[in-house]
């Protein structure tokens, strides 16, 4: 059982009308590890991510979770399967306090709270874990980017996932804040949560990920440890632009 990858993506393709955003991508996510996905802007990272999270179905291909086909599952089914996600553009519940934001998700998921007290207790626990405890009575719209990013994670964690998807959770943070976020992500992983993340910040990817998948123009161009990937000639070419891309038109 534990040999099967937690997520197996098999030949998925997504076409929006004429545009092929993701073309025949396959990869697996190893249980218990932190796996990253990188690629230049417009490489199809978010599209791939949204397909795995059920926000839109792939045009072709299948997605397996724990060996079960979840291609057609709806986004709101995921927390019941112990899978949770964050958003690249933060979506805090603006007019609710930080605490209420997290209480709301503590009511849902596979280990959903049965009553208000349980929901609050669970929320408090998560807030302490993510370091938002002191700010629990602040309206979430009044917080800065780093805290809102943290809140995204707190909300996802309150559903007690075993697999967590992080969509550019460190974009817009300064180096010190990034360092904090990296520590938090590592702590989450050490508590037994498998993590799959999209990230632009190489420092984070290198220090966190066991395995990295590189997308470019909707295709998987490399996979391996951060070191292997960074030294891959094609990846270097894509990132540093050694040679003019033919497919740029």
């Amino acid at each position: 059982m534990s040999d099967t990858p937690i997520i197996e993506v098999s030949h998925i393709t997504k076409r929006f009308k004429g545009l092929t955003a993701v073309k025949d991508v396959s990869f697996t996510i190893k249980r218990g590890a932190i796996t990253g996905m990188i690629g230049p802007n417009g490489a199809g990272k978010s599209t791939t991510f949204n397909m795995i999270c059920g926000y839109y179905p792939p045009t072709e291909g299948k997605i397996f979770y724990d060996g079960k086909d979840i291609t057609d599952k709806k986004a709101y089914d995921y927390t019941n399967m112990k899978v949770s996600r964050t958003f690249q553009i933060m979506k805090p519940l603006k007019n609710l306090s930080v605490l209420d934001n997290v209480v709301a998700s503590a009511w849902f998921g596979h280990a959903a709270a049965k009553n208000e007290r349980q929901a609050r207790e669970k929320a408090m626990e998560v807030l302490q874990f993510t370091g938002l405890y002191e700010k629990r009575h602040v309206l979430s719209k009044d917080m800065g980017t780093p805290d809102q990013k943290r809140l995204e994670m707190a909300r996802a964690l309150a559903t007690s996932p075993q697999l967590l998807f992080l969509d550019e959770n460190m974009a817009g943070l300064n180096p010190a804040e990034t360092e904090e976020a990296i520590k938090l992500i590592r702590r989450i992983n050490e508590s037994g949560v498998t993590i799959f993340l999209i990230e632009h910040i190489m420092q984070a990817v290198v220090s966190l990920c066991e395995e990295v998948i590189v997308l470019h123009h909707g295709e998987k161009i490399a996979v391996g440890t951060p070191d292997e990937v960074m030294n891959d000639p094609y990846v270097m070419e894509v990132y540093l632009g050694v040679k003019k891309e033919d497919a740029d038109a």
Binding site: Y55, Y76, T79, F87, K91, L93, G109, T159
Partner: peptide, 8 residues
């Protein structure tokens, strides 16, 4: 979208 993400 946030609602769907937490299972609503």
């Amino acid at each position: 979208d946030a609602a769907a993400a937490i299972g609503i």
